[in-house]
Amino acid sequence: MKWIDYARPQTVAEAVQLLTERGDGARAMAGGTDLIVQLRVGRRQPDHVVDVKHIPDLNEVNTSGGGVTLGAAVPCHIIYNNDAIKDAFPALVDSASIIGGTQIQGRASIGGNLCNAAPSADAIPTLIALGATANVSGSTGERSVAIEDFCTGPGQNVLGADELLTSISIPAQGANSGARYQRFIPRNEMDIAVVGVGASVTLNNGSFESVRVSLASVAPTPLFVTEINDELAGKDVTDENIAKAGEIAKDAAKPISDMRGTADYRRHLCDVMTRRVLSDAITRARGGNVDAH
């Protein structure tokens, strides 16, 4: 690994100042489970690592008012051990409990998963499905970005060189809502999604009021498939309509063939996994239980 400088700011202002001074040569780190590997293999080469996980604001979990605001550095294990989150946002638990294994989950954060902007990120489709926004601080102030607009390419995001992701806000999900994230992997853990699907549904009696579906690993950035809502909103919850969502997901996907799967196989999995994930989301919307894993 090349030489790096390391700083451990205690406030957002201090962190933003460091990032601003160093510009593109600096990179914020929370758990470091992606960044340290990337530094080691030379995929990212900042001169300066700004360790933001000791900033109190970035470690806050605020579940008041039905929604949740997650500090950007909150590690996965805090999320899946938080009763309020388990109760209101089981899809977030789905994601947090499969990012790496036990050891990785002790460090890795949802904020880091978002900023790393991998096409295969397991948290991003969930955040998109839940309608979350990213809260960003920079040298010129603060702004919020819808998660579906956050990633701009593999490993790339909208953050300016002076900007820091401080938290992620997930709005309260309405009554009769449910969400689910599942990925398909060849092993049962410790793997990268061949395809991942995050979905949330809001039901109105026997029909879909709204449906948000997002796919991982089938495009340069996590894909928000709005066409599914266009098709299903107002329609009855039936196997035929769920199957239609699968077909739409399959058509929307723009996968490549690589060591983790062929494009044909990934398209096929978009169909299969969208159907499965929607069914689980519907079960949760109806008050049923679906285990995270």
Partner: peptide
Amino acid sequence: YFMSDEGRMANSSFLDYRMPTALD
């Protein structure tokens, strides 16, 4: 060994060279 078109091993890590875990 997943070989690239250039003849290199594309999956040369324990993440992508998938050996069984306890869960498998």
